[in-house]
Design a protein around this nucleic acid. Structure first.
Length: 595
RNA sequence: GGUCCCGUAGCUCAGCUGGAUAGAGCAUCUGCCUUCUAAGCAGACGGUCCUAGGUUCGAAUCCUAGCGGGAUCACCA
C-alpha cells in the first residue's frame, strides 16, 4: 500500500511536471472516502495556480494523464477539486497474494535500534490495582508495537523497593503479624503485605486521635505518633544496613514479588529486565555530584543541590537534600544512566501517569544537559487516571479496584455470557476455562486500549464491560467464526491454502474492500509505533472485522457453485483471521479457535 | 495564580501532520437464524464538533482569547 502510494506520488509529480511544468515537493494522496467511487484521492486545489484552470478541469487533465500512463490505475472520476483514482483489481489481488505468502505479514524484521520500554513500576507495599492495569497494558502493547515496527525492545520496570512506605508494612507485620506468611494464610504475598500497610495506617490514625485528645496540635501529633517514629527508625536502620531489618525487608519484598508475578502472568505481560531503586539511587547521587562539578547544577548554602530551569519557563528543582540524601529525581537519573550502560539504548519510553508530566519534562531536560546522546529519544507515555464513579482511587482508604479481583470478575462475566449463549457445548473443562479467560481479559484489555491514553477513563465496577459492538469479544468472535469456516473447509477437502488469489477475476465490492483493508496493516503498525498508540491498532482491527462481517453476511461461501470462488473466499477469510490474530496480539489479546 | 492535558450524538469513543455530505459502538425503534457461529448483519432515529474571534480557496483539525473538567507547581515517591 505505502509502496503503491509512493509510486503514485512519483507519477503525479511527473504528470504535474509534464502538464504544467510544476515541481511539486509535497503532495497529498489520501484514501478516498467511502461515499465516493475510487481508492485514492488527489486534492488538486494546490495546483490551480500552475494549471491556470478551474479545479474540475485540472483534475480531469491530471486524471487523463495518469489513466493513460500508469498501468495500476484503471479509472478515475472528478468531484469538485478531488481526483478519485481507481486502482485496478489486479493490483489489490497481487497484494493479497503477497500477504498469503507472509506468515509475519506487517511486521518488520528487527533492526539495530534498541528502545527500552518501562511500565508497571509498582511500590512494594501493596497489590496492583486498576491504575496499574492500564499502565501495564499500555506499556506492554507499545513494546509489542515498537518491536513489530522493527526495533529491538527491552521491557523493564523499576521497582520502588526502598523508603518509608515499606517500613510501615514491615513494622505492622512485626507487631501484629504473629509470624504469618503467604503459605500459612493462603494469601497472595502482595495482598498479605498490603494488609499490613492498611493496618499500619489504622493504628497510626488511632494514635493521632489519642494525641489530639491529649491536647497536642495536629501537626505535632501527625509527626510524633510513636508508630511513625518507629517506622522512621526502621528506615534509618535499613539505610545503615542493619542485618535484621534487611532480612525482614528481603523476606517481605520476596512475598510481594511472588504476588506481582502471579498477577503479571494472569494479565499476560512480562519483562526482560528489572531495576530496583535500592540499586540505582547511589549512581544517581554520583552523577549529581559530577553534574555539580560540570556546573550543570548548583549548590545552596545549606548543602542542597538544585537545577535552575527558570530560563526554560520551569522552576528550580531539587536533586539532593541538604542532608545529602537522594530524592525521586536523583533516582530516576541514576536508573536512566544505569540502563544506558547495561543496554546500548537509542531511546526509552516511560509509561507513567500524567500526574508525572512535569517530573519527566524536567528529567529529560536534565539528561540532555548532562549530554547523553540517547536523551534526545526519551518519551513519557503519559496516560490519564482511571476514575471510579465514587471518585479517585486511594489505597489507604480501601477505595481501589484490585487487579486480581478485576480480572476474575471479567472472567466470571465471560463465563456467564458464554453459558447463556450455549457456546461451550462439546468443550472440555480446560478448554472452557481457557476460553473464559481469553474472552474476559480480552474485553478488559480492549476496553482500556482502544481509547487515547491521554483521556481519563471512568470505570464503573458495578457495570460489566460490554461484550457487543466495538469490543474485544466481538473481534474474538469474528476470528473464531472464520476458524470455524476453515475447519469445515478442511473436512470438505477444500485446498484453499494453495489457491492463487492473484488470478481470481470475480472480485465483489465487499471482497475488494477487504483486500484494501488488509493492505493497510503495515502502515497502521508504523503509525501506531510513531504515535506510541495501541488505539490505532485497536481501531484498525475493529474496522477490518466490521468489513469482514459485512462480507460474511452477504456472500455465503459453501453454497457457491464456482469452486474458485469458494477457495478465494476461504483464502481471503484466512488472511483476515491472520491479521486479526496478529493485531490483537500486539494488544496483548489472545483470540480463540472457537467460542 | 503559572504550566500541561481533556472538551465531538443521551452515554462511551474514532476522526485532529487542514480537504468532499463529521463516523462507530451502546441505548431506542424496524427488519434478518428449517444456508458456513445472531457475541452477528441491514436500516431508522440522534450533532451550535464547548464559545467567540482569526489564518485559508477550504477549519472538528492550525492560531488567539474565554468557558468547563482534570493534573501539577514539596528538602514525598
Amino acid at each position: 500500500m505505502s509502496a503503491l502510494k509512493q509510486n503514485l506520488e512519483l507519477e503525479v509529480k511527473k504528470a504535474l511536471k509534464s502538464l504544467y511544468s510544476l515541481d511539486a515537493s509535497i503532495l497529498e494522496i489520501q484514501q478516498t472516502r467511502k461515499d465516493f467511487e475510487g481508492d485514492l484521492t488527489l486534492v488538486v486545489f494546490p495546483f490551480l495556480r500552475a494549471s491556470r484552470k478551474g479545479p474540475e478541469q485540472t483534475a480531469q487533465q491530471i486524471g487523463e494523464y495518469l489513466h493513460e500512463n500508469v498501468a495500476q490505475i484503471s479509472g478515475f472520476n472528478v468531484v469538485k477539486g478531488f481526483l478519485n483514482l481507481v486502482i485496478s483489481n489486479e493490483v489489490w489481488l497481487q497484494n493479497l497474494q503477497n500477504i498469503t505468502e507472509h506468515t509475519n505479514y506487517g511486521l518488520k524484521p528487527v533492526g539495530s535500534d534498541t528502545i527500552m520500554v518501562e511500565y508497571s513500576s509498582p511500590n512494594t507495599n501493596k497489590p496492583l490495582h486498576l491504575g496499574h492495569v492500564r499502565n501495564v497494558l499500555l506499556g506492554y502493547s507499545v513494546a509489542n508495537i515498537l518491536e513489530a515496527a522493527g526495533n529491538k525492545v527491552v521491557k523493564t520496570q523499576i521497582i520502588n523497593d526502598r523508603g518509608i512506605h515499606i517500613c510501615k508494612s514491615m513494622l505492622a507485620w512485626q507487631k501484629w503479624g504473629n509470624g504469618e506468611t503467604p503459605q500459612s494464610t493462603g494469601l497472595k504475598g502482595d495482598k498479605l503485605v498490603g494488609n499490613y500497610y492498611v493496618r499500619f495506617d489504622k493504628e497510626y490514625k488511632l494514635e493521632i486521635e489519642q494525641l489530639l485528645s491529649q491536647g497536642l496540635p495536629e501537626e505535632k501529633a501527625k509527626n510524633e505518633a510513636p508508630i511513625l517514629v518507629e517506622a522512621r527508625e526502621m528506615l534509618q536502620k535499613w539505610e545503615q544496613g542493619d542485618a535484621d531489618v534487611l532480612a525482614l525487608w528481603n523476606k517481605m519484598n520476596g512475598w510481594v514479588y511472588d504476588g506481582f508475578e502471579a498477577t503479571y502472568e494472569k494479565i499476560g505481560v512480562d519483562f526482560n529486565e528489572i531495576y530496583y531503586e535500592s540499586n540505582t539511587y547511589l549512581l544517581g547521587k554520583k552523577v549529581v555530584e559530577e553534574g555539580l562539578a560540570k556546573g550543570v547544577f548548583e549548590k545552596d548554602e545549606d548543602g542542597s543541590v538544585w537545577i535552575d530551569l527558570t530560563d526554560e519557563g520551569l522552576d528550580r528543582k531539587i536533586l539532593l537534600r541538604s542532608d545529602g540524601t537522594s530524592v525521586y529525581m536523583t533516582q530516576d537519573i541514576g536508573t536512566a544512566i544505569q540502563r544506558s550502560e547495561d543496554y546500548h539504548i537509542n531511546g526509552m519510553i516511560y509509561t507513567v501517569g500524567n500526574e508525572q508530566d512535569y517530573h519527566f519534562k524536567v528529567l529529560f531536560i536534565i539528561l540532555k544537559k548532562l549530554g547523553f546522546d540517547w536523551a534526545e529519544r526519551l518519551f513519557h507515555l503519559s496516560y490519564g487516571m482511571v476514575d471510579l464513579p465514587s471518585g479517585k482511587m486511594k489505597s489507604r482508604e480501601g477505595t481501589v479496584v484490585d487487579a486480581d479481583d478485576l480480572m476474575q470478575q471479567q472472567i466470571d462475566t465471560a463465563k456467564e455470557i458464554s453459558e447463556e449463549l450455549g457456546k461451550t457445548e462439546g468443550m472440555t473443562e480446560m478448554e472452557k476455562e481457557e476460553l473464559y479467560e481469553m474472552v474476559g481479559l480480552g474485553a478488559l484489555k480492549y476496553f482500556i486500549l482502544k481509547v487515547d491514553p491521554k483521556k481519563r477513563i471512568l470505570f464503573n465496577p458495578a457495570e460489566s464491560i460490554d461484550f457487543q459492538g466495538n469490543t474485544g469479544p466481538f473481534i474474538q468472535y469474528t476470528h473464531a467464526r472464520i476458524k470455524s469456516l476453515l475447519r469445515r473447509a478442511d473436512l470438505d477437502n477444500l485446498a484453499w491454502n494453495g489457491f492463487e488469489v492473484a488470478s481470481y477475476t470475480e472480485l465483489q465490492a465487499e471482497e475488494r474492500e477487504l483486500t484494501k483493508l488488509l493492505a493497510q496493516y503495515p502502515e497502521v503498525i508504523q503509525l501506531a509505533a510513531s504515535e506510541y498508540s495501541p488505539a490505532q491498532i485497536a481501531n484498525y482491527v475493529y474496522d477490518l472485522v466490521k468489513g469482514y462481517n459485512a462480507f460474511y453476511q452477504k456472500w455465503p461461501i459453501f453454497i457457491e457453485e464456482n469452486k474458485d470462488t469458494i477457495l478465494f473466499r476461504l483464502q481471503l477469510s484466512a488472511q483476515v483471521a491472520k491479521v486479526i490474530q496478529s493485531g490483537m496480539s500486539l494488544l496483548g489479546i489472545k483470540v480463540p479457535e472457537r467460542m
